[in-house]
């Protein structure tokens, strides 16, 4: 087995504008779990975690199970160790996770995401778009978000969020 070097998708330093920080999160283990028809409850029992309802994140023992579409969820954290009545795929290297945290996070995302994020709560997630890119948006708190998009689009995603953040910061500076 060759000695492989884990490399981040971007390797950018965190960017802070208007008190709001964009970071690239460390790569986590991401396992997509799509229960076979009628097996959702059995999968949840085997995992020891509730299977998330649409738009929800279930946290347990340092792992989170993020709803990622119809009958599919992403397990973020250690991979399942038991056999599951589900299609299970390791997608760790297919996604990049950015984080946007701070008072202007909602204003910046409003320029890129066609959802009203002003009244979101921890434990919510959304499958939507970041401009033209697919997005899994995880709400950590009212002004703290994790953004998962395809790793092949990492540079574009960073650029888009940076651009939105720069414009929000410029507007905030004008009205300060």
């Amino acid at each position: 087995m060759p000695d492989l070097i884990a490399k981040p998708a971007l390797g950018h330093a965190p960017l802070t504008l208007a008190g709001t920080t964009l970071t690239e999160e460390p790569q986590a283990r991401i396992t997509a779990i799509a229960p076979f028809p009628g097996q959702t409850d059995a999968v949840a029992r085997a995992l020891g975690m509730a299977f998330p309802a649409p738009g929800q994140v279930v946290e347990s023992g340092g792992r989170s199970l993020v709803w990622a579409g119809r009958d599919i969820a992403f397990l973020i954290g250690d991979a399942p160790t038991v056999a599951l009545a589900a299609s299970v795929t390791d997608q760790s290297d297919a996604w990049v996770t950015l984080a946007l945290r701070g008072p202007q996070a909602v204003a910046a995302l409003a320029r890129l995401v066609s959802l009203d994020l002003r009244r979101v709560q921890a434990g919510q997630c959304f499958r939507t778009g970041l401009n033209h890119m697919p997005l899994v948006l995880i709400v950590e708190d009212a002004d703290r978000f994790r953004l998962m998009t395809f790793r092949s689009m990492a540079q574009t995603a960073w650029h888009e969020v940076q651009d939105a953040l720069e414009k929000v910061a410029a507007r905030a500076a004008l009205t300060a």
Binding site: G55, S114, L115, R127
Partner: peptide, 10 residues
């Protein structure tokens, strides 16, 4: 029915 009201471009 899963995601709630969404914009047409999705």
């Amino acid at each position: 029915p899963f995601c709630g009201p969404r914009d047409r471009r999705e």
